[in-house]
Nucleic acid binder design. Structure first.
Lengths: 226, 226
DNA sequence: GTCTATAGAGGGATAGAC
DNA sequence: GTCTATCCCTCTATAGAC
């Protein structure tokens, strides 16, 4: 199934990745993983220590390279533009690309892993929290700084929200989720190139939109009263 | 219907909803649910038949009303505008509002349920597939038709992709996920009103963006060949 | 490094008293 | 409708032979 040679470790990782994405981590047993990977049940504990260790390794294998790509991309752009603001399109593209490459390359997890990513970090929160505070946060701050410079009129809070929206659209868009299956013929969820071509103008326009005039959020304005 | 008093059934639903969102469905046992709900273990099987039945009921309780609101909103707009195109802002707002109300109202699940929603349908796929083909798809088609009329220059395929992005940004934006916690002080994940105020211009601008010029996707360009 | 066998904990579901 | 007690299953993890 997977790429070329496949060591026991790699086979376990690939089988686990697919099963986690299909049924969730909690619903996937080590027995099923090792059966699919055609390795012995005890191999998981030998190579990864525990199921948690396996989960961590599944994420690490894919996200490590992406984070490094992000960092290299933003550094290249900073170097290329010096003190001038980097165009929003280039910032966005340099962020979207690495994730898209992941989604379009079976050897990097393909849409299987993207789906695992999009399904959120609930089941793997412990690992994500560790990952975030170590590398991810740092990279994201670089991107945020570049966007602040590119969009100086935008209030910082608004930019934060838009980054959140961007991430949602990106992950959901690249995992070819729920929606696209319903519109058969209109859009092909497997067409990652198309997804990127569609994503970038959508995100750039959203980032460039005029900031909202915010209403006063007094104590009584909320709709929370039943 | 249900607000303060809590029947056994409601208490189970609320406890399950929270635990599912926090740890995933597969990682949450009936024993833990019933302990938290302060009801007897056997009550789940009595009221819902099985754990699967409970999962289904957890989603149904929240999504049913939202779907009905969506339908009412789009019908009101269609009636108000007759044959004239409905402004994109109004379409988007009428779609975002019901989900936002859900997120801001503890009695409707609040951000707990939104998070469960955003974490995807992997673990509850069977239920989602049933729900989608019954009600959801119909409502979404109405919205898509309205957007086609409002944005006649947009290729249908592009609109489909943008709807997918919209859903991603919406669900991730309203569950106050991963990202916002990292930027303390800059944005408050709990501020649902703010989220809506930020979401709408972002989404409207994205939908209104110029359609991308697509590159040729010849047979050899994709990496997805199996 | 790979296997078998099993320990030990915890899961969903149900029978039957109240 | 609620409770206790329990059946039977699957799970993770490990010990120990090869």
């Amino acid at each position: 199934m997977s790429s070329t040679h496949s060591s026991t470790k790699e086979r376990i990782l690939s089988a686990a990745e697919r099963l986690f994405a299909e049924a969730g981590i909690g619903n996937t047993s080590l027995r099923l993983i090792t059966t699919r990977a055609r390795v012995n049940l005890a191999a998981v504990n030998y190579h990864f220590g525990s199921k948690d260790g396996l989960v961590e390794a599944v994420y690490e294998r894919r996200l490590g390279p992406v984070t490094r790509e992000w960092l290299a991309n933003i550094e290249n752009l900073e170097h290329e533009y010096g003190d001038r603001p980097i165009p929003v399109e280039r910032i966005v593209e340099s962020f979207v690309r690495p994730v898209a490459r992941l989604a379009s390359d079976e050897n990097r997890g393909g849409r299987i892993f993207t789906r695992l990513l999009a399904q959120g970090y609930t089941e793997a929160r412990q690992y994500f929290d560790k990952l975030f505070s170590s590398q991810y946060q740092h990279v994201l701050d670089r991107y945020r700084q570049s966007l602040r410079t590119a969009l100086p009129h935008l209030p910082p809070g608004t930019l934060c929200w838009r980054l959140q929206f961007l991430l949602g659209a990106l992950t959901q868009g690249l995992c070819g989720g729920e929606l696209l299956r319903l519109m058969e013929g209109q859009a092909d969820p497997n067409d990652t190139e198309r997804a990127v071509d569609e994503l970038i103008p959508f995100l750039v326009a959203g980032l460039r939109a005029e900031a909202p005039r915010l209403r006063e959020s007094g104590p009584s304005t909320q709709g929370a009263l039943a």
